[in-house]
């Protein structure tokens, strides 16, 4: 077998196990208050740390990325649908990089 194909199979199998083992093993409701709190906050922390500072680094101009961050937060505070927020961010970058 081609070595790249073997790499791909190993990578896919490992990733599948990483994803499936927790939902398979944890079958009971967790009663511990700390762990419950921890899992409640995990999604927010995960998405937040992935967003910043990457959002200002992935655009050609960091100013455009920063503006997208601020614009996105302001829009989200008005509880606008998340896809509209995403589009607003894209438009801000598109316009600012064109102007700057």
């Amino acid at each position: 077998m081609n070595r790249i194909t073997l790499y791909i199979i190993v990578m896919a199998a490992t990733t599948l196990l990483v994803r499936v083992i927790p939902v398979l093993l944890i079958r009971k409701e967790i009663k511990n208050r700390f762990i419950k709190s921890f899992l409640f906050y995990v999604p927010y922390v995960t998405l937040a740390v992935m967003t910043f500072p990457t959002i200002i680094e992935c655009t050609k101009s960091p100013i455009a990325g920063a503006a997208a961050l601020v614009g996105g937060i302001l829009a989200a505070l008005k509880k606008i649908n998340m896809f509209i927020v995403a589009i607003i961010c894209c438009v801000i970058v598109l316009v600012l990089e064109f102007v700057l």
């Binding site: 927010y44 992935c58 607003i88 894209c90 598109l94 064109f98």
Partner: peptide, 25 residues
Amino acid sequence: PEFLVSALSVSLYGMFIGIIVPPAR
């Protein structure tokens, strides 16, 4: 084109902001 990649790359983070910010209010 590069400008399109740049603009598209923030869409993901915009979506994340749209998820985590409203409950924070």
